[in-house]
Structures are given as C-alpha cells and as structure tokens.
Amino acid sequence: MGGACSGTQSRGKVITEKKVPVVKIGNLKKNPSLYLGKTVTVKGEYRGWKAECGPPPVTRSDWGVRDETGTIYVTGKPASHLDPYKDIGRKITVTGTFHLKKNPYAHLKIENIPYIKAVKIEIGK
C-alpha cells in the first residue's frame, strides 16, 4: 500500500471545497440538527475499525475519522485501499453528507450513531 494511498478520489456530485464548511466533529455531534443532510468537511486522522464511537452504523466496512473534538464514522468507498488497522493515524480529509442512524441494537444504550456519507476523500502523508 504505502505511497499508493496519497491522492484524491471524487465520486458523485462535484464539490467545490470553498463552499463546504470545515466542521469540528464535536460540533456535528453536539448540534446534529444543524448539519443533518448537509455537506460538510472534516479533517482529522483515519481511525479504521478502531473508531471511538460504537458499532459501525451502515456497513461492516465503515471506518472512523477523528479530530481533537471526537470521532465519527464514514461510510463509502475509501480512497485507495486504506487498511483499517495499518493505516490508523493517517491524515485524512473527508467531505460528505452528515446523517444520523438510529441505533439498531436494543441492547446498546445509545440513541443515534452519527456518520458521514463520503463523496470525496483526501489522504495525506
């Protein structure tokens, strides 16, 4: 893998980064209604399957991104092949729409699991 992970992957609608607010993950979690369905950008580090926010909300391949205010899940194709363990800590910028998934597990005491459905991912060194 190594250097192959650098670069940008863009899918779906074209997004101009200037128009998309860079949001702290903590803000997304504190005020989810403000961002629900809207396109946001978060910058942080790749957390793979060690996302500090419970079970993956959508698919078994969902992965986490963390900044200094928290961690959130991302669903969607990874840029290149990020390894969910080996690449933990890589700098990453994710742009996508913000969603809340109702916790499907009655035996897990959380209400909703927030996540970003990615349309653009940039991976740093």
Binding site: K50, E52, G54, P55, T71, Y105, I110
Partner: peptide, 12 residues
C-alpha cells in the same frame, strides 16, 4: 484502550 469503552455492549 481505543476510546470505545462507552460503547461496550454489556448485554447478556
């Protein structure tokens, strides 16, 4: 250890 303690499934 990975910051997920709050999400441990304690059922059963």
């Amino acid at each position: 250890a990975i910051g997920q303690g709050a999400y441990d499934d304690t059922s059963y």
